[in-house]
């Protein structure tokens, strides 16, 4: 028991140190910026006495470590500053935009898992055959294709040529603003409140970005599943199972897969974290009103508080997903327990 407690304490300590480090990076990125923060707030023509006053108010006349202390103290009070672009506090903006990203990433994750895991298992079972090579090329292509290319391809095919799916955005203008905001995830909000037309429309809008993002992450899931399955299929218990005359499906799914799904959970959590990166580009192409688009817009408007705030929040989510992967693995794998 004390061993487990010590591991827990060690993990917590290292997460805390990492989180502290996470705050240092955006702070220093903010300080190397060639734009004078005072000019950014007041403009070029502010009178010198106002400039001097603001400099003192912002603590910019103080040493760097003191500035960091102010930055850190504000952070503890969940104050990431105000966005110049939206004039709202950055954290408020992030709370507004994040649910859409969460909705998109979760939809993509479900698709990627449902396709990627069986593909990986199939490739492992048929190792070295043509199926295996096709799966390998398919997944290598997934990790080589620029996300924006996939998004454009999808638009050309499903929107322009076939006309099956709507172009961009989260919902058509007609349905905009009808559904009351509950979770911020439009598809779910529409379903809860029974706005089925909006639900159907929003779901159609979700298909393209979700599929694009899913392919992006499927490559990794497939590759890892294949690797885990190959290792599992080499186990002696598999030979035993075969000798007992069990069916192939039972051996593959119950005996081999039953032993790798815990490892897979770790992979899925990591993939989920990686989706945040793909979401930046996907959301930009599909005008999806999520955190990624908020980040790109702030970048183009040199809205540094918003950029650093979203970077920090994404970093924190990333760390917690990693931690979650670690904890789940410890909880569920009897060998680690």
């Amino acid at each position: 028991m004390s061993g487990r407690l010590r591991t827990l304490a060690g993990t917590t300590a290292s997460v805390l140190i990492t989180l502290f480090g996470l705050t240092v990076v955006p702070f220093f990125i903010g300080r190397v910026m060639p734009i004078d923060p005072i000019v950014a707030i007041l403009g070029d023509h502010a009178p010198p006495d106002v400039v001097a006053r603001v400099r003192i108010e912002l603590g910019l006349n103080r040493p760097l470590w003191y500035q960091f202390w102010i930055f850190f103290r504000n952070l503890i009070h969940l104050d990431l500053g105000r966005s110049v672009m939206t004039t709202h506090p950055v954290l408020h903006d992030i709370g507004r935009y994040f649910p859409a990203t969460f909705e998109l990433a979760t939809a993509a994750m479900i698709v990627a898992t449902l396709i990627g895991v069986p593909l990986g298992v199939l490739a492992a079972v048929r190792q070295g055959t043509r199926t295996d090579h096709v799966v390998r090329v398919f997944s290598l292509a997934g990790s080589s294709i620029p996300v924006f290319m996939l998004a454009m391809l999808s638009l050309v095919v499903f929107y322009a040529a076939l006309g099956w799916l709507p172009r961009t955005g989260q919902v058509s203008v007609v349905y905009d603003g009808i559904v009351p905001r509950i979770t911020g995830m439009l598809v779910i909000d529409a379903a809860i409140t029974g706005h089925w037309n909006t639900f159907y429309n929003a779901l159609l809008h979700l298909v393209q970005p979700a599929l694009v993002l899913a392919y992006f992450s499927m490559a990794y899931i497939t590759r890892m599943t294949r690797g885990f399955m190959l290792d599992a299929l080499r186990g002696e218990y598999i030979t035993t199972a075969r000798a007992k005359g069990l069916s192939a499906a039972r051996i593959v799914w119950r005996h081999a897969f039953g032993n790798i799904w815990v490892q897979l959970i770790t992979v899925l959590a990591l993939t989920y974290a990686g989706l945040l990166e793909g979401a930046v580009v996907t959301e930009t192409v599909f005008s999806w009103p999520g955190l990624g688009q908020y980040l790109t817009n702030s970048l183009l408007n040199a809205d540094m508080n918003a950029v650093l705030g979203s970077t920090l929040v994404i970093g924190i989510i990333y760390v917690f997903l990693n931690l979650l992967a670690d904890v789940l693995y410890r909880l569920m794998d009897p060998r680690v327990r």
Binding site: T18, G21, L22, V25, P26, I29, G30, V32, M33, P34, A273, G274, L276, E277, V280, V281, L295, L299, A302, M304, V307, L308, T311, I314, G315, Y318, V319, N322
Partner: peptide, 15 residues
């Protein structure tokens, strides 16, 4: 702890 693209974006925006 940062996705690569996002950290790179923040750096470039700052420079």
């Amino acid at each position: 702890a940062f996705p690569r693209l996002i950290l790179a974006l923040a750096f470039v925006a700052a420079i």
